[in-house]
Each structure stands twice: as structure tokens, then as C-alpha cells.
């Protein structure tokens, strides 16, 4: 485990703070969307979407059984793409 530095040099430490803040921001945005489509559209806000018909039922049902899964997928790939870019911007990639 020689490469895993426990005393990052000053530059990494300085940039590290900005990098971590940017990461946290990404996580919060992603988790808000994550909760909105599942707990929101799929469960709690379903009555609000009752008017929008989808194939014999309403939009909330679709979100609960399929829509949220598709959004989850998009979220993970978006986060991975964004973070890998961020790693390079802050020069902390492997």
C-alpha cells in the first residue's frame, strides 16, 4: 500500500477542499432527483400526477414500476461522467 499517501502534499490538500465541495454538490443534486422520482412521483406525489394517463393507468404508477429505474440509471452514469471529468479538472485522477 505504498502508493496510498496518508499525507497528501499541499497542492492536493488545497485543491482537495474545492474538489470535495464540488463532489458534495453533485451528490446532493443527484440525491434530490433520486428521491423526487421514487418517493415523490412514485409514492407521495402520485395523487398530483393522477390526471396524466399512461397506458391504462397514471404517471405515478409508471414512475413506481419503471420510470424511477430509468432515472436511476441516468443519474449514475451522469455522476460517473461528471466526477471523472472533475477528477481531471482538479488533477486528482489516478
Amino acid at each position: 500500500m505504498a502508493e496510498q499517501s496518508t499525507n497528501p502534499d499541499a497542492k492536493v490538500a488545497r485543491d482537495g477542499a474545492g474538489y470535495w465541495a464540488a463532489n458534495i454538490r453533485m451528490i446532493i443534486i443527484s440525491l434530490v432527483i433520486w428521491a423526487l422520482v421514487s418517493f415523490g412521483f412514485g409514492i407521495l406525489l402520485r395523487p398530483l400526477l393522477a390526471g396524466i394517463e399512461v397506458g391504462g393507468t397514471d404517471l405515478g404508477f409508471w414512475f413506481a414500476q419503471q420510470g424511477s429505474i430509468l432515472v436511476f440509471l441516468a443519474l449514475i452514469f451522469f455522476y460517473a461522467w461528471r466526477m471523472n471529468k472533475l477528477d481531471k479538472e482538479y488533477g486528482v485522477e489516478e
Binding site: 500500500m1 505504498a2 502508493e3 496510498q4 499517501s5 496518508t6 499525507n7 497528501p8 492536493v12 490538500a13 482537495g16 474538489y19 470535495w20 463532489n23 477528477d87 488533477g91 486528482v92 485522477e93 489516478e94
Partner: peptide, 20 residues
């Protein structure tokens, strides 16, 4: 302090060991 450093190092990808 060494635990704070450990958390700090886990948070950034740089310096990850290959096959440990």
C-alpha cells in the same frame, strides 16, 4: 489526526493502489 488524514485520502481518487 491520522484518521482525519485517512478520510482525506479516501475522498480523492489519486494514489489508489493497483492490486493491493
Amino acid at each position: 489526526q491520522e484518521i482525519k488524514d485517512l478520510v482525506e485520502s479516501v475522498r480523492v481518487p489519486a494514489g489508489a493502489g493497483a492490486a493491493v
